[in-house]
Amino acid sequence: MLWRDLVSLISVSEVETSDNVFELAETSRDVLADKKSVNRDEFYKAISNDLRPTVAFKIRAIEYAGEQRLKHNGTDYMIVRTYSRNDETIELVCQAFDDVQTNLALLRDTVEIWHNTFIENSMGESSPMEERLFTLPARVENRGGSSGITDGVIETTNNIIVTIRYREGITPDMFLKIGGQRFDIRYIEDPFNRHETLILTAERVVL
């Protein structure tokens, strides 16, 4: 086997920079690989999962540590599948980064995730108190809004789609803050159940 292609294996992770404030960090290392075409069977299996693999790289199994991305000749790829025929080599099936819907490089915005906790006063009464849980890198897309009258009060809504790295424990009773403005979470989606990202549909209501 000819190990004639140099690739960079890239790992993307969230790093806590301060109390519950996270940023994306990348680490990379170079390994030798054998570039291959994606066979027809692999291609059609991927199509059924809404993926578009374009190339595969075979490397020594001992050199792979679960990285999510790969770079070769200036092109960034997402590793969408791994396949090993034996204990010595592993095949990394890749898709061009621009074609990956869950491109983590697009998380250039910042959102805060909050929830309400309830505290009890001296009279035994409970009242809600807002508590910040996390500050996370995200992609925020505005989706417009609407206005209407409810009980004689004019309401204006602003809808957004927020993409974050997959994280367990995010629930619809939580809410977002962006630039000091509150957005209530309406829907949560895990694309293709791949546990890579979460897509949050959120709404801000202005009275």
Rank of each mutant, 00 (worst) to 15 (best):
V31G: 08
T135K: 07
V15P: 00
Y83K: 15
Q101P: 02
D98V: 15
D19T: 14
R85E: 11
L104Q: 08
L200E: 00
Q68M: 10
T27G: 07
E112G: 05
I119H: 04
V100N: 02
L198E: 01
S147A: 12
T110Y: 01
L133A: 09
T89F: 07
S37T: 12
T171W: 03
V55D: 04
I119P: 00
R182S: 11
E112P: 01
G180P: 01
R85M: 11
V31P: 03
R165N: 03
E189H: 10
N158D: 15
T156H: 09
C94H: 02
T89K: 07
I170W: 00
S48G: 05
A25W: 01
S147T: 13
K71I: 11
V206H: 01
A138W: 01
N103W: 00
K177Y: 02
E131C: 10
E203R: 13
S28T: 06
L133C: 10
I119A: 10
S37K: 12
L106H: 04
I164D: 00
R182M: 08
S84K: 08
L51V: 06
T171S: 13
E155C: 03
R194E: 08
N39T: 08
N116A: 10
G179K: 01
Q181N: 11
E14C: 07
R132E: 04
I90E: 01
K177A: 11
I185F: 04
G145M: 06
I161P: 00
A138D: 04
N49G: 06
F57M: 08
N49Q: 14
F192E: 15
D50G: 09
D41R: 12
F192H: 13
T117W: 00
V80N: 06
I10E: 02
T163F: 03
G74T: 07
V38N: 02
I199P: 00
L2I: 13
V21T: 12
A33D: 03
T150C: 04
V12T: 14
P53T: 12
P128I: 10
A46K: 02
E91A: 09
R60E: 09
D190R: 06
Y44K: 12
F97T: 09
R132P: 03
G148H: 05
L176G: 03
T171M: 14
N49H: 10
L106F: 02
N39Q: 04
R85V: 07
A96I: 15
E14G: 08
T135N: 03
V31C: 11
S28A: 15
